[in-house]
């Protein structure tokens, strides 16, 4: 709009003013042409400092990974671990009597023996409960608690002899078989629950594209075969060590029948120290095999065949 008495130019706007050279307006310049102002995700590095416990164990005890919903591979392992856990629960209850436990001593002191039994049962049930939650929620903390409780149940004082309080079992052989089954199931339980976590991590890594697995079935088959073979071998070794009170007299019997009979009747061989001796002998053989580098030599032979 033209103002009366003034020309159309803009000179009047500058009258009485000093016009200085000014730096250009950055905001104006930026205008529409804008790059992204978003801070990249990798701009601030994520540093995890291990805790004291982690540094002691050389890594995290409980994985922090968030798992994706379990796929068929993990579900099968969960079912298997669940079955083994129930069998282990039964075996634990059979193999580990309440006598000699800490809570038995406590209840005995109070004069309420039933309390000991109740507490014993509670520990077994707590171990099962933690295990159940740990397996199906894939929470390693509960699994860890379950292992501790299962081991805690076996901790008994002043008892060198296995007593099957809950089942009327007689006969050393059956007792030892049950004991080996208990041990094998405990170890299998640890391994299977561990594998639930391990395979969940693997499954999540596969599905998030972090790792690619060629022929998953073959890899799984190998694991399943190992799950059958390894417990059998471990049970055989354990059986050999537990039956050392029969094996040693049998060998000695080849040379002297009297010494063999004495050994058979020896308290040391039938006690836990007999098992220790058996373990020592068996693992001395294993150590000799390792010492002579036989497995590596055998592997080398197979590789060059």
């Amino acid at each position: 709009m033209a103002i009366p008495g003034q020309t159309g130019d803009t000179a009047h706007l500058y009258e009485g003013k000093t016009v200085r050279a000014a730096p250009p307006s950055r905001k104006k310049l930026a205008g529409q042409m804008k790059g992204s102002k978003e801070i990249p995700k990798d701009a601030v590095p994520d540093v995890h400092i291990p805790t004291f416990v982690e540094s002691m164990f050389g890594g995290p005890l409980v994985p922090r990974m968030r798992f994706l919903p379990a796929d068929k591979m993990v579900q099968t392992l969960q079912m298997l671990a669940g079955v083994v856990m129930i069998l282990l629960g039964v075996l634990t209850y059979v193999v580990t009597p309440v006598s000699g436990t800490l809570w038995f001593a406590f209840s005995d002191m109070l004069g309420v023996e039933v309390l000991g039994v109740v507490l014993h049962l509670t520990v077994v049930l707590a171990a099962l409960g933690c295990g159940f939650w740990g397996i199906f929620q894939r929470d390693a903390r509960f699994l860890l608690a379950s292992y501790v409780l299962f081991i805690l149940v076996s901790l008994r004082f002043a008892s060198s002899k296995v007593t099957f309080q809950w089942l009327p079992i007689e006969g050393e052989f059956i007792e030892k078989i049950l004991l080996i089954m208990y041990a094998v199931f405990l170890v299998m339980y640890m391994e299977l629950t561990n594998s639930v976590i391990r395979f969940s991590m693997l499954d999540t890594s596969i599905r998030t594209g972090e790792v690619y697995v060629m022929n998953v079935k073959k890899v799984l088959n190998r694991y399943h075969i190992s799950l059958v073979i390894t417990p059998v071998i471990a049970a055989a070794v354990a059986f050999l060590t537990l039956m050392i009170n029969i094996v040693i007299p049998a060998i000695v019997g080849l040379f002297s029948e009297i010494t063999a009979t004495r050994l058979r009747e020896s308290v040391e061989l039938t006690s836990v120290y007999g098992v220790a001796l058996g373990t020592m002998i068996v693992f001395l053989v294993v150590a000799a095999v390792f010492g002579a580098n036989l497995p590596a030599r055998f592997q080398k032979f197979r590789e060059s065949a």
Binding site: V95, S154, L155, A234, T279
Partner: peptide, 23 residues
């Protein structure tokens, strides 16, 4: 612990675990 407490269960579990690892 099994040897100290003269506990056969613990020793057996340890033997099975060691066998597992050795294999």
């Amino acid at each position: 612990l099994g040897l100290t407490l003269r506990n056969q269960q613990l020793v057996t579990v340890a033997v099975v675990l060691l066998s597992f690892l050795t294999w």
